[in-house]
Simulated scan of single mutants.
Amino acid sequence: MKLTPSLIAICTVTSLSSFSALAGPIQVYGKVNISAQMTDDGQGSFSELKSNASRFGAKGDMDLDNGLNVFYQVEWGVDLTDASGSDNITSREQYLGLKGDFGTVIIGRKDSALKSLTAPVDAMNNYEADFKGLWKGENRLSDSVSYYSPSIQGFTVELNYAVEDSKEGEDSLTSGVYYGDKKLKKSNWFAGVAMDSDVKGYDVQRVVAQTKLGSWVLGVVAHTQESVATGDSDSGLALSSQYSINAWKLKAQYQSLEDDNSFSLGADYKLGKATKAFAFYTSRSLEQSEDQSWLALGLEHKF
């Protein structure tokens, strides 16, 4: 029998469920997000369906002796509209971790400190206007070891070290320090700075700040990137705003990289605790290429 990515994923989740009594409670979860959209790629317009970072996975944890806690997550991306066969299921964050008074250590495949630091500010995350559309640094690091320090007066340090994995490979390091709560539930401020050092051929630095003012959430990101091979350097800025009123969340976002820029408007409407309808419009202007735009209407359900 041929082991396809789909079969491996199913077997893994099934195996974890079978041993949940031994290893502690297991949570199987996922998100289905699909949009119908009109796309203009600069050469012409067409309609399409997009699966926007739909996923499923399993996670859990268990208390150990000496005040330690072990935890894990295995997660896959699923394309519900375009890709099929071996391309349908792709790896996302998959790791094993250990937590204690010393902090937290995670081994496996993990979003970098730079990527995770910026995600809360990216109001269009996982859509066409995701920050990765213009910027380098949105990396999920394989073969990595990550360390999170305990919170010290609200400050947390994160380090990600990715091993070379081959004779031709290169080690890389991402580091970050941030203050406050990324979800803005324990505090009304979140700020931080992070940098990539020779990660996938680029040195990247970002400064991030976000605040909650009543029904508003406002964020800003200053970004610079430099190619390790050529030394070419570019800088950019992102501004995002989100406004909640009853079941609605209204969004606006601007992103730039030198003369390239992107502007988006969006709206989410909560249909239930785990379900929402959404719409967005994104216009992207590129100096070295044709301008692009997207108009979308979609539905998301989490489980």
Rank of each mutant, 00 (worst) to 15 (best):
K136P: 02
A162I: 03
Y148T: 08
T81N: 11
E128Q: 10
F131A: 01
S144E: 02
S172I: 01
S86P: 04
D61F: 05
S166E: 14
D171I: 11
D130A: 06
F71Y: 14
D130Q: 08
S86Y: 10
Y127T: 08
L68T: 08
E93N: 15
V163T: 14
G176Q: 01
Y127V: 06
S149P: 03
E168N: 12
T90M: 03
G108H: 06
V105W: 05
Y161G: 01
G108N: 12
P150K: 11
L159R: 02
D101G: 14
G103H: 05
A83V: 04
S146V: 05
S112Q: 03
S86Q: 14
L184G: 02
I152K: 06
I89W: 00
S91C: 07
E170N: 15
G169N: 13
L141Q: 01
G103F: 05
T104R: 10
D165T: 13
T81I: 08
P120G: 06
F71P: 00
Y161V: 07
T81C: 12
F155H: 08
Y95H: 13
N125W: 02
P150Y: 11
G77M: 00
E170R: 13
V163W: 10
Y95V: 05
R92M: 07
T118K: 01
S149F: 09
M62Y: 09
A119I: 08
G97W: 02
W189V: 12
L68R: 12
Q94R: 10
Y179L: 11
V157P: 00
N160W: 02
N125I: 10
S86E: 12
S151A: 13
L98V: 13
P120R: 04
L80Q: 06
E168H: 11
S84D: 11
V105F: 13
G97A: 15
D181V: 09
L64T: 06
K182P: 10
I152P: 00
N66I: 07
D87H: 08
S166P: 09
S142Q: 12
V105T: 06
K185D: 12
A119T: 14
G85P: 03
V121G: 00
M124Y: 04
T118S: 09
G133Q: 04
D122A: 08
L141E: 01
D65C: 09
G100L: 06
Y95A: 07
F155S: 09
V78F: 05
F102Y: 15
S116N: 10
G176L: 03
Y147R: 04
S86W: 07
K99Q: 15
V121H: 00
S84M: 09
S149W: 06
R109M: 09
Y179F: 15
T81D: 12
K99G: 02
K115N: 09
Y179N: 02
D87V: 04
D130R: 02
T118L: 04
